[in-house]
Design a protein around this nucleic acid. Structure first.
Length: 411
DNA sequence: TCTGGGGTCCTAGGACCC
DNA sequence: TCTGGGGTCCTAGGACCC
């Protein structure tokens, strides 16, 4: 094994959300299930079990379409806390095998196993042990596919080769053969827009991309030109970076059941989203300094996003509502609104800032965690600030996300 | 009843300061 | 009198990921 040769694992949890649901509820096992919103809410399937996939149900398909293809599909509304908890548990397992674990998403990680495995054969043995640990400790419904390769890009391609519960190795000698078989848009970082752009340039295969002139690619894509060319040649030097996955932004969005310009509905929906965000911020002891307010007009006739910097760091609903409501209100005068969202950025930990910078909203910042405790204990909407009170309307939208859980969790 | 919701990163232009 | 230039922050928007 050459000295500079790396051994990288990419681990992908199979049908992750659906598997977690099936693990939690034995009644769902062996059945086609989809995680997502109910039909009628204009929602889509965020994840499908393998039973559902075999019936043609695909991720990002509308619930309406999914049920048309598979009428016995059980649709479960997701439980993001349960997925996050399962994520923490499998990351902890991976960390027993290497100190370099990069969490790429809720259901994917890279592991740098260089030095921990002396050869590809030994790497395969370790991969099998990881798979059996996951199954034993998280439950038989939770399986993963592991790709092993000399870099992150190829490891990701490898984990996709065998699903579910697969194990696939790409040796350096097999890289070229593999790349010849895949389309450019299968490479990490090349999505539909870039793929289309490449086709306009006459670049239709991965081999053609690998052989394209760097000058041309850099002219068209800037610094990413080199990244695309290297990807097509199987070259990726990026390191596995052990990231403690601390969120850089927290946001929520919601597609309304019907397009509307009704200010009361829009304002109360916006407030519901903001309240969810602020409670997450406070739970993580984070304050935000920047806010993006976003909406999509009816029939996808454009969208609008505006950012602003807040007066000071806050986790307070009213400050965010004051900043975002004028944007949504004005937008609704252009066209009825289909969907709206709010996202907070520039998060900072509350303990890292002196109280004096909180200025006028200090009182609210100090009192809101107490309101959270009451709401957490007795249920949402038990208590809320007077300024946001519009009971009838807030109740109207309060149950829109997680109130649809149709199956009791077994644990 | 076509077309969700959660994120990350990058670019480019303008304002503003020195 | 010529209009400079670098650095940073802010904002809008685009592209990607799952």
């Amino acid at each position: 094994m050459p000295q500079n040769q790396r051994i990288i694992f990419h681990i992908d949890m199979n049908a992750f959300f659906a598997s977690v649901e099936q693990q939690a509820n034995p009644l769902l096992r062996g059945k086609p299930i989809g995680v997502g919103g109910k039909p009628g809410t204009r929602s889509i399937i965020a994840a499908a079990s393998y039973e559902a996939k075999r019936r043609g149900v695909k991720t990002a398909m509308s619930s309406y379409e999914a049920l048309r293809l598979c009428p016995e599909l059980t649709i479960v509304s997701g439980d993001s806390e349960a997925y996050a908890e399962t994520n923490r548990r499998f990351v902890a397992i991976f960390k027993r095998y290497t100190h370099l674990v990069e969490v790429f998403s809720i259901d994917e990680c890279w592991l740098d196993m260089t030095g921990y495995a002396k050869s590809y054969e030994e790497a395969k043995q370790l991969a099998r042990r990881i798979k059996s640990d996951v199954r034993r400790e998280l439950g038989e419904q939770i399986t993963c596919s592991i790709g092993i390769a000399p870099n992150k890009l190829l490891a990701k391609l490898a984990s996709d080769k065998e699903k579910p519960n697969g194990l696939f190795l790409i040796r350096p000698s097999g890289v070229r053969h593999l790349l010849n078989q895949i389309e450019p848009n299968e490479l990490l970082g090349i999505g539909p827009r870039i793929d289309e752009h490449l086709k306009r340039l006459g670049i239709r295969t991965t081999t053609a991309l690998a052989e394209s002139s760097l000058e041309l690619l850099q002219k068209e894509f800037g610094i990413l030109g080199l990244v695309y060319k290297n990807a097509a040649r199987g070259i990726d030097e990026s390191p596995v970076i052990s990231i403690e996955s601390r969120a850089k932004s927290i946001g929520h969005s919601y597609t309304l059941p019907k397009d509307t310009d009704d200010e009361k509905i829009l304002r109360s929906t916006l407030f519901t989203l903001i309240q969810k965000i602020c409670r997450r911020l406070r739970r993580h002891d984070c304050l935000t300094r920047r806010l993006t307010t976003w909406c999509r007009y009816k029939n996808f006739e454009g969208s609008l996003a505006m950012q602003c910097t807040l007066d000071g760091p806050t986790w307070d609903e009213i400050s965010l509502l004051e900043a975002s409501w004028p944007i949504i209100r004005d937008a609704s005068k252009t066209l009825p609104i289909r969907a709206l969202g709010v996202s907070t950025h520039d998060l900072i930990h509350s303990k890292s800032i002196p109280l004096s910078v909180f200025k006028k909203s200090t009182k609210r910042i100090l009192v809101t965690p107490a309101l959270d405790k009451i709401n957490n204990r007795f249920g949402d909407w038990t208590i809320q600030p007077f300024a946001t009170l519009d009971t009838r309307l807030t109740r109207h939208v309060s149950g829109f996300k997680h109130a649809q859980k149709i199956t009791p969790r077994s644990q």
